[in-house]
């Protein structure tokens, strides 16, 4: 049905409703410009609102994985350095054992060698007790313990028992570096498994020097202990590089997620300002047209 008559009430009602709609649009656009966001409630864009919720949750998780990876990298770096020093100590011990096996030395020289082995034992114990920011990196789950995981070497080395020296945890500490429950990386090394052999070998070397026995017999033991340290060091290096890769992956994923979040919720200022101008023009036109229609009446045109 076509409209055959436009009543004056209708014209004015239309003007009021149209300008009202335009003013509401203007207000929304102004809000978008002021806040830089284009979503104020989920119904503004349901899909974008859901995407924004997902991106925010993913960003929070990535921050957690990132800090876990960085912490793990630091801890493993410290371990790598400590294990390297441990290897040096064993190399020195092997030198002493070789010297003692291959030449006849005076009792005084043997005493000096014993003294040095005693020092090496203390140094290796100190390495086993390495701390990073108050955490014992070789204490397993007991990382936060204030007590050192390895007992100090007594003055009388004969009373030292390497088998009972370790008092740290026998469980390992993992950090979470990804969404899956399997994305965990072990960042501690149990001191007893990695240093147990080395401490025993040093004690045996000391005993051999004390009892004038063949120090050469301990060479194989020292070699095995050094291999154990080297193996663990390789494992530490592998895990460290995994964590470094994870950290950089987390960084690039964070950038991606921030982009997704921005696309979902940020307003495109150029587009919004263009629409603001367009809406302002439309409002201006509606008001002008309304005023014009209200003014042009037959009453004004007829000379009665």
């Amino acid at each position: 049905m076509t409209i055959s008559r436009v009543s004056d009430a209708q014209s004015f009602a239309l003007l009021v409703s149209r300008t009202g709609q335009l003013q509401a649009s203007l207000q929304t656009l102004e809000q978008q410009i002021a806040s830089g966001k284009r979503i104020f409630s989920p119904d503004d864009d349901p899909l974008a609102a859901a995407a924004s919720t997902r991106a925010q949750s993913a960003l929070a998780a990535l921050a957690q994985y990132g800090s876990g990876s960085r912490f793990g990298t630091d801890v493993l770096g410290t371990q790598d350095k400590a294990l390297g020093e441990g290897e040096q100590i064993l190399v020195r011990a092997e030198e002493i054992a070789t010297q003692q096996a291959s030449s006849l030395l005076s009792p005084g020289e043997r005493a000096a060698a014993r003294e040095e082995v005693h020092g090496l034992l203390e140094a290796l114990t100190a390495i086993g007790n390495t701390e990073l920011g108050g955490r014992r990196v070789f204490a397993g789950l007991a990382a936060d313990s204030t007590a050192a995981p390895f007992a100090a070497v007594p003055e009388d080395v004969s009373a030292y028992d390497p088998a009972t020296a370790y008092s740290g945890s026998t469980q390992e500490f993992f950090v979470k570096v990804g969404g899956s429950a399997d994305d965990r990386v072990r960042i501690t090394t149990r001191g007893d498994t990695v240093f147990g052999g080395a401490l025993t070998a040093l004690k045996d070397l000391w005993t051999a020097l004390e009892t004038s026995g063949g120090a050469g017999g301990t060479l194989a033991e020292l070699g095995t202990a050094r291999d154990a340290l080297a193996t663990e060091r390789a494992s530490v290096g592998a895990r460290q590089s995994e964590l470094i890769a994870r950290t950089s992956q987390v960084k690039s994923l964070t950038v991606e997620q921030q982009k997704a979040l921005s696309e979902a919720q940020d307003s495109d200022l150029v587009a919004v300002i263009a629409r603001l101008t367009e809406t302002q023009t439309a409002l201006q036109a509606a008001l002008t047209a309304g005023a014009e229609i209200a003014r042009t009446s037959l009453v004004d045109l007829l000379k009665l």
Binding site: M1, I3, S4, R5, V6, S7, D8, A9, Q10, V299
Partner: peptide
């Protein structure tokens, strides 16, 4: 509303 107004509304010019 427009249709109803076209029957019952008042247009001053008319």
């Amino acid at each position: 509303h427009n249709q109803r107004e076209s029957f019952s509304g008042v247009n001053l010019n008319e």
